[in-house]
Design a protein around this nucleic acid. Structure first.
Lengths: 337, 337
DNA sequence: GTGCAAATTGACAGCGCTGTCATTTGTGTC
DNA sequence: GACACAAATGACAGCGCTGTCAATTTGCAC
C-alpha cells in the first residue's frame, strides 16, 4: 500500500502538518524535527501524491512551455530548450507540459485561456516568437499567471533569459572583416522575429563601424530554413559583384548557403566564407565545419525556467539573466585571398 | 469563483454523482439526463479540476512519453512523434509529459520506477530504441502500467504502431534496380536498432531478389547522423569499383552522402543516385530533392497514443496498427546512364 | 393493476494533503 | 520564579471529485 504523509508523521512522532511543513520547506521547524522527519521520509521512501497536494494547496506544480509550431522551423532549437526547462523543473519537483500554440488566427488568446483553465499551470515558459505577442502577455498578466521568456524582444517587465544577439552578430561580422572581407552579405530571418532584427542590426553595426556603406543587394530576406538559405544564396551568387563572405542569420540557412555554393562550384572557404548563428549539432558536422555563434539553447531553457521557479516558489521576483555567447571559429571562414 | 461539479448538478437538477457520470462518459444515464447535464456544463463553462478527479478516482489522466535522448540523434523524429502523441492525448483530455530516459548505465529501471512513483502516469508511450529493452518492459508489466510502442522490434505482446520497414527498404532498393543500378551501396544505422536491421534486411532482400551476390564492401556502418553519412560515403567513394547508387538508412545520412558527393565533384543524380528513409523536412528542401520513404512520424505518434488511450479508457485492448509507407520519388535518383 | 428484475439516480464517505487558527513550548527579562 | 512574547507544533476542516452501495424509477410479463 501507498505510504502517506500520515504514516511518515506517525513514524517521526510528529503531526501530519509538521511533515507537510518539512515537505514544503517551510520556516518554523526546528532542525532536530526537520531531520527526524526527513529521515522517516527516506526510510519509508515516501512520495507525496501531487494530486492531493494540488487539491489541498490550490496549485498544480505544473509549468507549461508554450511554443509556436507554426512559425518555428528549427525544431532542434525547441527540443533543446525543452530539455533545459525539463531539467530545471525536475530539480524542483515540478511537472512540465508542452503546448503548441499557433499564433495564426485571432483566437490564440482564447486558446491560451483554455490551457490555463484546463491545466492550471502555476507558471509558463514562453519561447520565441510568442515571447512578443502583446495580447498574449496582457492576458497572462490579467490572469496573474507568472511567466518567463526565452529571448524576449523587450527587456522591460520580462524575466527569463536573453543573449546579446546584436553584439554576437557584430562580433561575427567583425571576424569576417578581420579576415579582409569587405563584400559581406547577410541572409536574414523571418522579419518580425527578434532574432532577425538583432542579427541584422549587428551586421549593420559592424559594417558601418568599418566605414562600409550598406549595399541593399547584399541583404537578402530568408526564413530560417535550409531551403531559404539555398534560394538566398543563389540570388547573391547571381550578383555582378558577388560577395566574398555570407553571414546567415542561423545555421540552417548557412547550410543552405554552403549547399548552393557547392552547387555553383564555389569552394568554401577558399572562394567564399560562410558563417551562421546558433551552433546547431549539424554545424560542427558539416564539411567544412561551420563558423558560428554558439547559443546555448539548452542552458537558456534551464535558466529561464529557474527564474520562473524562483517566483513560483516565493523565493524572489526573478530576473532577466543574460547568457554569454561565444564565437566558434571553424573551417568555413578564411582570409580573403 | 470556480464552477464546481456541484454547481452544475444544482443547475441541471441532478445529483453531483450523476454529473460525474456524464463527465466520465459512463453507462446507465438516460439521454434526457445526459443532455440536460451537458447543457448545464456548457452554459457554465465547467472545467473539471483534474487534481480532484485524480485524487478521488485514483488515476492521473497522464500519459508519459519516454525517449532515449542519448542514442537518438534525430530530434526531428522525436519532436514529430511528440506532436502526434500530444494531439491524441488532447482529444481525450489526457495530459502528456515527456521524459528522457537514458539507457546507459544499469539503473534505468530504477529511474523508470521513480517516474512511475512520482508521477503515476496512467500509461506510457515508448519510442525507439527503448521499445525493445526487455528489463524495462518487464518492469512495466510487473507494475501493471499499460504502454504502447512506436515501431517496436517485436510485434508480439505489443500494442502501438508499426510500419513494414523491411518492405519499404526493399521497395526503395527495387526502385534503384528498376533504374538500372546494380552496384548499390547501403549505409546502415546503429546496429541494434530495429530500424537498422529492417532496412538492411530489406536491402539484402531486394539485392538477392535481383540475383545479385552481396558485396560486403558496399555495406557501411553509419550511426544515423549527417556526419556518419559523410564518413561512410567517403569510404564508398574510395572503392575501386564505386557504387552508382547509395541507399542510406535515414535521411540525415543520405544528406551526408550527398554532401560528400558534392565534395568529391560527383553530380547527384547524374553520377550518383542517393536515397534515404524517413522523409524529414530537410529531404524535400535539399537540392536535388531527396528520394526517400515517407514515414509519417506524427501520425504514428498519434496512432500509438490512441491505442494506449483505448486501453486506459477501458474501451478495448489496443492493437499494433500497421501504418502504410510511401515511396517519394524525387530528384536524387535517376536512371543509370 | 401487480410483481419483479433491471436500469437509473442519489447519499455519503473519503481520497491525501494543506490552510487556518489554537495550543504548547522555548526564550529572555526583571 | 513569574511574566511577556515569539517560535514551534498540532487539531481539524475541507479542497472537488468519485467509489460504494442503497434507494428509487422504469419496463415488462402476466
Amino acid at each position: 500500500m501507498r505510504v502517506r504523509l500520515e504514516d511518515v508523521a506517525r513514524r517521526a512522532g510528529v503531526s501530519p502538518k509538521t511533515v507537510s511543513r518539512v515537505l514544503n520547506d517551510e520556516a518554523n521547524v526546528t532542525d532536530a524535527t526537520r531531520q527526524r522527519v526527513t529521515a522517516a521520509m527516506e526510510a519509508m521512501d515516501y512520495r507525496p501524491l501531487s494530486s492531493a497536494r494540488s487539491l489541498a494547496g490550490n496549485r498544480s506544480f505544473l509549468v507549461a512551455m508554450l511554443y509556436d509550431n507554426n512559425d518555428n522551423p528549427a525544431s532542434t532549437y525547441l527540443a533543446e530548450i525543452q530539455d533545459g526547462v525539463l531539467e530545471a523543473c525536475d530539480a524542483h519537483r515540478y511537472n512540465m507540459m508542452v503546448r503548441p500554440l499557433r499564433m495564426r488566427g485571432d483566437d490564440f488568446v482564447r486558446r491560451l485561456d483554455a490551457v490555463i483553465s484546463d491545466h492550471h499551470p502555476d507558471g509558463i515558459v514562453l519561447t520565441p516568437p510568442i515571447t512578443d505577442y502583446a495580447p498574449l502577455l496582457k492576458r497572462l498578466r490579467e490572469r496573474q499567471v507568472p511567466f518567463a521568456s526565452v529571448s524576449p524582444m523587450s527587456r522591460v517587465d520580462n524575466i527569463g533569459v536573453a543573449m546579446d544577439e546584436q553584439l554576437a552578430a557584430r562580433t561575427m561580422v567583425e571576424h569576417l572583416l578581420s579576415l579582409g572581407h569587405r563584400r559581406i552579405a547577410h541572409v536574414s530571418g523571418i522579419a518580425d522575429h527578434g532574432a532577425s532584427r538583432w542579427r541584422l542590426a549587428g551586421y549593420r553595426e559592424a559594417m558601418a563601424g568599418a566605414g562600409l556603406a550598406e549595399d541593399p543587394k547584399l541583404v537578402v530576406q530568408g526564413a530560417f530554413t535550409f531551403a531559404s538559405g539555398v534560394t538566398a544564396a543563389r540570388q547573391l551568387f547571381a550578383l555582378k559583384k558577388r560577395p566574398t563572405a555570407v553571414f546567415a542569420a542561423n545555421d540552417d540557412m548557412a547550410s543552405g548557403v554552403m549547399w548552393a555554393a557547392n552547387e555553383r562550384g564555389l569552394k568554401v572557404p577558399q572562394d567564399l566564407s560562410v558563417c551562421g548563428f546558433d551552433d546547431i549539432p549539424l554545424a560542427s558536422q558539416l564539411w567544412p565545419a561551420l563558423t558560428t555563434i554558439r547559443q546555448p539553447s539548452r542552458e537558456m531553457g534551464k535558466v529561464a525556467a529557474l527564474q520562473l521557479l524562483e517566483v513560483l516558489r516565493g523565493r524572489g521576483n526573478g530576473q532577466l539573466v543574460e547568457i554569454p555567447f561565444s564565437l566558434e571559429i571553424r573551417n568555413s571562414t578564411a582570409r580573403l585571398s
